[in-house]
Design a protein around this nucleic acid. Structure first.
Lengths: 224, 224
DNA sequence: TGTACATCAGTGAACGCGCGTTCACTGATGTAC
DNA sequence: TGTACATCAGTGAACGCGCGTTCACTGATGTAC
């Protein structure tokens, strides 16, 4: 993948973006540990030193890639959500959205394990937290899904607090099982079953009371 | 922590174990990446080369530490399980055991994040899989807990398949949230709530049918 | 329109770091007679 | 009980690797007059 194509121009013109793209490719292939200034520069066909014109250092490059990875994760989730049929019943739709959110998260992890690991690489710095209100922010999508479940009466308002962590934990753990854990070498069918089983357990676990139970049964019925 | 105490004897006598202990200490402090032959040797006060008398190379040392970490994780879970009151009602006890298993897993992760990461470091090699039938193997404990839930009628037998992955995912994701994720800097109380909420969601999600619902209600009642 | 020159964006060589691993070696131990 | 010698478990120096980062530099660009 090393395309050390020599530039004709002395000035690159768009080096910052080129380095970022290269770094993202490295993250894709080898995860966050694979992102180095030297190899990104190598891919672009430029001296490592040149990178220092555009990034303060390795840390800044890695942070930029991480940001990119989070963005792509959010977009993947959005894609899954958009594919959910807009049916009559709002309650049923809410449950479907919950499933889709989870599937989007796990789907991205499986499709792009290196980027997924990079997105989750070491705790956010305070600066990053501040700019967390982006469009298609993964955590945002998750919260919206839960709010929807409250709105349709599946999740009791008093059960809402901390529900994001129950949901996120379950889905994140599933992703790790699939890309780094015991499900890595499992046959495709087993992986599918594990995903379905986990997401169903999660969403059923969130449901509250009789109303919740009714909605859940309806959802199970439509799954066949 | 570097104790380069010079030995009086030329021969160490127990170098393999000493290196292993040192390596475990490194994993404790810095996770799997911190485990190197050179630093382990440094801690023991011995030349790096000496390590090659006892381990084929870095990989074998790391594998040994990983094994140690998994063992300690299992012991931690066992400790939590043993603390559960042996009450009259078997069904209730089964649910309590489920909670305790999860708490043990997460508790170990929080108490020993470096070792926890090491225990989960990269997929098992085939060799390791073979010797997985150990006493207090984490996965074993998890399976037993689920079997117990089936026995008491909380979990329908037809729901048993893949239940380990639903449970493991949820609990592993929770651990990651706590030691490397968004809950890292959360106040103690929020962390506690997230743990409780996640485990409750999981176990409620596993329960099947009316019988399950009854047992769950009883459990919630005793929680107060 | 042309030119002097400041500024910008790269180069190339070098630094120090810690790592895994190999080599020829030597000091200590244990065993056969 | 004593000794020769094989074996074992260490040492010390060195290798090559890729990394982040700094330094003095130079080629290209753009702007003031």
């Amino acid at each position: 993948v090393a395309r050390t194509r020599r530039r004709s121009t002395y000035h690159h013109g768009d080096l910052r973006n080129a380095l970022l793209r290269a770094a993202a490719e490295l993250a894709e292939r080898d995860g966050p540990e694979g992102v180095t200034i030297r190899s990104a520069a190598r891919m672009v066909g430029v001296t490592p030193t040149a990178a220092y014109r555009h990034f303060a250092g390795h840390d800044e490059l890695l942070t930029a890639v991480k940001h990119e990875a989070v963005t792509r994760l959010g977009r993947a989730m959005r894609r899954y959500l958009d594919r959910v049929p807009r049916d009559g019943d709002a309650a049923l739709a809410a449950v479907r959205h919950g499933m889709a959110t989870g599937r989007g998260y796990v789907g991205f992890a499986v499709a792009e394990p290196g980027l997924f690991r990079t997105a989750f690489f070491r705790p956010k710095t305070p600066t990053e937290e501040a700019m967390a209100e982006r469009k298609d922010d993964p955590f945002q999508l998750l919260s919206e899904g839960l709010d929807e479940l409250v709105r349709v009466g599946y999740l009791a308002p008093e059960s809402r607090p901390m529900a994001e962590f129950a949901a996120w934990s379950s889905v994140h753990g599933l992703a790790v099982m699939l890309i780094d854990g015991p499900l890595l070498d499992a046959p495709r069918e087993a992986r599918e079953q594990a995903i379905t089983r986990t997401l169903q357990t999660l969403i059923r676990g969130l449901g509250d009371g009789e109303h919740g139970e009714r909605i859940w049964s309806a959802f199970r019925a439509e799954q066949g």
